[in-house]
Design a protein around this nucleic acid. Structure first.
Length: 430
RNA sequence: GCCGCCGUAGCUCAGCUAGGUAGAGCGGCUGGCUGUUAACCAGUUGGUCGUAGGUUCAAGUCCUACCGGCGGCGCCA
C-alpha cells in the first residue's frame, strides 16, 4: 500500500498542494448530492474544504452512504477550481468512513437554548473552533508577558478553608468530615508566595456562588492573578495597561484569520495604547453626577454607571482611589487620607469591570483593625497575618477575568461563548 | 434576593386576543435533478401542546400551583 501524505485542510486551502495527491482526515461538514457528483465539505481542526466524488468513481457508494458529522479519511487530488469555496477542492479517489454518524441534531435553524443543551456537539462549530483558538493564543500571550516581566508562575490551591472576602459567594463542599470552600481568588495564597519569589502569577479557575443572571457572569471562570512585592499603584496600573496592550496587539497580529472569520472589529484592539486614562473615584462621581446621575460619595457604582463612564472614554481606562467602606479588608489605605484605599478597577466599554487590583495592606496593626471593623474573625486569617509579622513588604496585585476579556475582545454577545463548557447558575451540563 | 419574558413534531415557530377535528417550514425517508455553495422540485414521515390540578358540554387556548430555561437589576472578574 502506498503511503499517502496526510495534510491539514488549511494547507490545501492555502494552495500548498495544487495537483498533488494526498490524504485528509476529518468530519463531514455538509453534503450535497446531484446526479453525477456528490459534494462533501470536510472539516478538520484547521478548516473546511470541498471534496467531489464522481459517479464513476469506486468511492461513490461510500459517498452515498456517508452522513453529516461522520468521521472520514479520504485520498484525492487537489484541484484549483473557482466554483469551490476557498478556490480549491479535492477530487476524491478513495473514501473510507471511520465512524458513520447518526442523524446530527444540529441543523440550520437553532435556538440559543438548544445549542446550550448540545454544547458538547456545538463545540464542533466553526465559531467555537475559532473562539477556542483565539482563547488559547490569548492565554499564551498572557504567559509570555508575565515571563518577559520576570514573574514566576505558581499553582495555588482550589480548596480553601476560609473566605477571601465575604462568605456569601463561596461554594461550600464536604471535605471528608470538614466544611471547605472552592476558592474565589488565589490572591491570599499568592501573597504568601511573594515572600519567596517576589513576582508571582497564576491562571486558575475561581468559583463564585453569585446568583447573577447576566451575559458577563460565570460561576466558574479563569482568573489571571499576579502579586508583586515592592511595587506601588503606579507600577500596577502601568503593568496592567502594558499587559492589555500586548495581548491586543499580539492577537490582532497572530489571529488575523480567526478574527476575520469571527467578524470581529479589530480597530478597537489596534487602538489600545498605554497609558490608559486614569480617574479617581471622586472624579468619576463628579463626572457621573454632571451627566445626571445621583451618586453620593461613598456609594459604589452600578453597571449603569460603569457603562456611562466606559462610553465616555470609548476604550479601556482605570478608576482608582475608592472609598474604604466599599472595598475589601485587605486594601491598603492612603496614608495621607485613610478614607481612601489604593484600589483600581480596569473597565472596558460594554462589559464594565474586567479587572480589580490594588495595594494590599502591609501593616499588621492596620490589617487587624480592618478585620475587626468588618466583623471577620482574626483566627481565620492567622496565617495571612503572619505575612505581616515576618518581614512585611509593600505589594500590589490584581485579578483579571479571562472570559470577560475575551468577551470584550471578540465582541461576544454572552460570556458563555468564551469558555468551552460554561458553568452558570442554571447550566452545568454537559 | 428583586423584576420581566419563554415552554406546541427531532429543530424553528404559528395557533391562544374571542375555548369547538393539531398546522407550516426545516430535518428524516422515497423519487427526480449536468457543479452544488446549510441547493432545488415532488411525495411522505413525524405530537403526553413542560407537569399537576381547576373552570367548562368542550381547554394547546381561561385560572392556580409547580418544574425547566432566557434576560435585566443587585453582587462581582
Amino acid at each position: 500500500m502506498m503511503l499517502m501524505l496526510v495534510v491539514a485542510i488549511q494547507d490545501v486551502l492555502d494552495g500548498k498542494y495544487e495537483e498533488k495527491s494526498l490524504t485528509i482526515r476529518g468530519w463531514i461538514y455538509r453534503k450535497r448530492e446531484s446526479k453525477q457528483t456528490i459534494f462533501l465539505l470536510v472539516r478538520d481542526a484547521s478548516g473546511v474544504v470541498q471534496c467531489t466524488v464522481k459517479r464513476d468513481n469506486p468511492s461513490w457508494t461510500q459517498a452515498k452512504k456517508v452522513t453529516i458529522e461522520s468521521s472520514v479519511m479520504l485520498e484525492g487530488t487537489v484541484k484549483h477550481d473557482e466554483r469551490a469555496p476557498g478556490g480549491y477542492e479535492i477530487a476524491v479517489e478513495n473514501l473510507s468512513i471511520i465512524g458513520l454518524a447518526e442523524v446530527f441534531p444540529i441543523t440550520e435553524y437553532k435556538s440559543e437554548e438548544f445549542l446550550r443543551n448540545v454544547r458538547h456537539l456545538w463545540l464542533r462549530s466553526r465559531r467555537m473552533n475559532l473562539i477556542m483558538k483565539v482563547r488559547s493564543e490569548v492565554l499564551r500571550f498572557i504567559h509570555d508577558f508575565f515571563k518577559k516581566e520576570g514573574f514566576v508562575e505558581v499553582s495555588p490551591p482550589m480548596f480553601i478553608s476560609s473566605a477571601c472576602e465575604g462568605g456569601s459567594t463561596l461554594f461550600g463542599l464536604k471535605y471528608f468530615d470538614k466544611q471547605l470552600y472552592l476558592t474565589q481568588s488565589a490572591q491570599l495564597h499568592l501573597e504568601a508566595l511573594i515572600y519567596s519569589l517576589e513576582k508571582v502569577y497564576c491562571v486558575a479557575p475561581s468559583f463564585r456562588a453569585e446568583k447573577s443572571r447576566t451575559i458577563r457572569h460565570l460561576t466558574e471562570y479563569w482568573h489571571v492573578e499576579p502579586e508583586w512585592a515592592f511595587a506601588d499603584m503606579d507600577d500596577l496600573m502601568r503593568f496592567e495597561e502594558n499587559l492589555l496592550s500586548y495581548i491586543c496587539h499580539k492577537t490582532v497580529k497572530n489571529c488575523k484569520k480567526e478574527m476575520e472569520s469571527l467578524t470581529v472589529d479589530i480597530s478597537k484592539l489596534v487602538a489600545v495604547e498605554a497609558p490608559f486614562p486614569r480617574i479617581t473615584y471622586t472624579e468619576a462621581t463628579e463626572r457621573l453626577n454632571s451627566k445626571g446621575f445621583k451618586i453620593k460619595w461613598g456609594e459604589d457604582f452600578g453597571y449603569d454607571e460603569e457603562k456611562a463612564l466606559a462610553e465616555d472614554f470609548g476604550k479601556p481606562f482605570f478608576v482608582y482611589a475608592y472609598p474604604r467602606q466599599i472595598k475589601a479588608f485587605y486594601c491598603k489605605t492612603y496614608r495621607d487620607n485613610p478614607d481612601l484605599v489604593m484600589s483600581t478597577d480596569m473597565l472596558v466599554p460594554r462589559i464594565g469591570e474586567i479587572s480589580t487590583g490594588g495595594a494590599r495592606e502591609d501593616d499588621k496593626e492596620e490589617l487587624l483593625r480592618r478585620l475587626k471593623k468588618l466583623g471577620l474573625r482574626e483566627e481565620d486569617y492567622d496565617w495571612y497575618i503572619d505575612l505581616r509579622r515576618y518581614g512585611t513588604v509593600p505589594h500590589v496585585g490584581f485579578g483579571l477575568g479571562l472570559e470577560r476579556l475575551l468577551t470584550w475582545m471578540l465582541d461576544l454577545e454572552n460570556i458563555i461563548d468564551a469558555i468551552p463548557f460554561p458553568r452558570t447558575i442554571r447550566r452545568f451540563y454537559p
